[in-house]
Design a protein around this nucleic acid. Structure first.
Ligand SMILES: [Mn+2]
Ligand SMILES: [Mn+2]
Ligand SMILES: [Zn+2]
Ligand SMILES: [Zn+2]
Lengths: 132, 132
DNA sequence: ATATTTATTTAGACAATGTCAAGACTAAAT
DNA sequence: ATTTAGTCTTGACATTGTCTAAATAAATAT
């Protein structure tokens, strides 16, 4: 991930210590963290940051298109630093979410859905990750 | 949907007025209701039913395999009377969820995922439903 | 530099979702 | 009638997420 300050400036967001702490964690994370995960990690760099600011910043990043948001697991939304189109695999044992590259799967038959105009889609898989 | 009492008996669940009210609504619903939706509808038939009992019953039905549960929209889990494999389409404007028959789509390439053992999968699409 | 205005953060209130435990209620079983 | 097991209700509780008012910080103007 590039410099957090320059990323924020590029998207016309004033870089503050709080926002920098949020961005530095969430945009480099590959674990699809929840807002609460982001809060606790951001507090390591900026111990005073509040819950409201973390939510405000995450929502702002999503609005600006810097960050993805997914509703894959119950209980809390998760945030996704990978903003390219991709699919997801959820480990049923651990709850961990893995990215599946877009071109690994092909979904055929969408043109047959006469009643629906599809803006976006993804495959969500659940199972067990094989040990390496 | 068949008789609620006989369904409950078949799955070794004692039929009570509360459970019957829940089952009669949730197993015939095609709208993917939330627990709160189920509660308010069940109270029409059984005005005294409590929130805890609705949650207990829904969780029991899911455990027994009579009812599906999905985490498709944020804020609350939704319950699915359709327990056959199928995909989902979410209307971005209304939030309505529609079932897409399993054989309308084909997902190819799962065998290439060497690191993952896939137990189940579905395609989730978002967009706008065309007016009829 | 000081004053003014604007942007941001914080703390806490609030609503909604979901789980849990204690006691009340019901229906068998003894 | 008593015990027992199963079920239900109430309310407490934790968590997620939003919102508002007050405090702070930053930018601008004088
Ligand atoms: Mn997490
Ligand atoms: Mn609903
Ligand atoms: Zn992802
Ligand atoms: Zn469905």
């Amino acid at each position: 991930m590039k410099n957090a300050i320059s990323i924020l400036r590029r998207y016309d967001i004033q870089p503050t210590p709080q926002r920098i702490a949020v961005v530095e964690y969430v945009l480099k994370s590959k674990t699809h963290p929840s807002a609460d995960d982001v809060l606790s990690h951001a507090r390591k760099k900026c111990p005073t940051v509040s819950r409201a600011t973390v939510y405000n910043t995450l929502n702002l990043l999503v609005e600006k298109g810097l960050l993805g948001m997914q509703t894959i697991k119950e209980g809390a939304v998760i945030f996704d630093s990978n903003i390219k189109k991709h699919h997801h695999f959820v480990d049923s044992d651990t709850g961990d979410i893995y990215d599946i590259p877009w071109d690994q799967l092909e979904v055929k038959g969408r043109e047959k859905l006469k009643d629906f105009e599809v803006f976006e889609f993804q495959v969500i898989m659940r199972g067990r990750r094989k040990k390496k």
